[in-house]
Design a binder for these strands. Structure first.
Lengths: 200, 200
DNA sequence: CGCGGTATTGCGGATTTCCACAATATGCGC
DNA sequence: GCGCATATTGTGGAAATCCGCAATACCGCG
């Protein structure tokens, strides 16, 4: 999924001109005439950022913003508005909007913000992919292996784990070795380091 | 250091009325007639939050905000302004201000924001104290113990560590046991958990 | 100079982990 | 039913860790 700027505005002229501006600066751009249109097109694998008009027919910009958040979007959102007020800007930013700019605005400024947002999103994605691949690894463990892993991470001895799980020590050793193998580590400490912070 | 609201505004009447409002709601408050006054009184152990007027004689609110940031303040800052515009609010929030409210504002709203900011600050402090106490623990280790700890956290076997440090395995065992004792853990895994994330 | 803290090492035994080899049982899909 | 993945257990030995007891050495402080 290439990184795009997703422009949502119900004004045809603005959509066209902004889209042209961005593409002329090397930023791939797709535009949508309504919040509903973008929401329909959105899926969690979209990468890039969103340029969102505040006031639109149908669903408003902030409403779309909230909805995207609920659906797990992490796309940076830049609000665009011709008639914004301070409380609206404050509210948007406190909810995690990337920026809030008033129309008309300086072209270079806007393109810069878009590029910043694109960069942020790219960084977020590499960071997330780390956690993701770890969760993928964990997902490949069997239930037993996960139970053993939990207890290994709690610093428990095999014999204690065996006792807690009501199985023999030998079995614990087997699960332990298997899960280390699957997680690609050689020691319990490496496992702890691997999962440091991003627990699932 | 008790948690306070630090009010910085050059308008006597506003200072008095806001201070009275906050104290009447149970929020201890101290006020300063200028940014310079607060800056002089500030030190890194102050706890609470800052209520900052934008436009003041001498140093402006945003200028003070930047300076505090440079000096390592983590106090949440709520900007107060009677004539703010959107770009100003956006700029403040993107720089990390806690909130940005326009005067006149609803008393309850403001008090709520202050309490939120106070809560945030308190949470930040407990989080920081955790990292701090860990660093304190580490600082009590001897040089050798730290060297051993590094390698233990790298998942190395005692024999390897002994080899790297050119000492006997027995010595490594001793250092290892001592540092576990000092760090208050019983296993290498616990140590890794303890230092998960906040490495010094 | 003696005391205390740190660093160092050895011995020997208890405990634990690691692993190869080997085997049984269950459940699931073709 | 057969093959495969998973779970389970055992034997036995090599390797590593854990730990008490004991000793030597260096260094800074009073």
């Amino acid at each position: 999924m290439t990184s795009h700027a997703y422009l949502v505005d119900d004004d045809d002229a603005i959509r066209d001109s902004l889209c042209w501006l961005l593409e002329s600066r090397g930023v791939p751009c797709r535009s949508y005439p309504s919040a509903e249109d973008f929401l329909a097109a959105w899926n969690s694998s979209l990468a890039g950022c969103v340029l969102l008009d505040i006031r639109m027919d149908g669903m408003s910009g902030p409403e779309l913003f909230d909805l995207l958040g609920e659906r797990g979007s992490t796309l940076p959102v830049i609000f665009l508005t011709g008639h914004g007020d301070v409380p609206m800007a404050v509210s948007a930013l406190k909810k995690g909007a990337f920026d809030f700019v008033e129309k008309p605005c300086n072209d270079n400024e806007l393109v810069n913000r878009v590029i910043e947002a694109l960069t942020l999103d790219a960084n977020q994605r590499v960071a997330a992919s780390g956690a993701d691949s770890i969760n993928t690894l964990i997902s490949r463990l069997t239930a037993r292996e996960r139970q053993v892993m939990e207890r290994v991470l709690a610093g428990k001895l095999n014999k204690v784990i065996a006792d807690e799980l009501q199985i023999s020590m030998r079995t614990v050793e087997v699960h332990r070795a298997n899960l280390f193998e699957k997680m690609g580590v050689r020691t319990a400490v490496e496992l702890a380091q691997l999962l440091a912070g991003k627990r699932s």
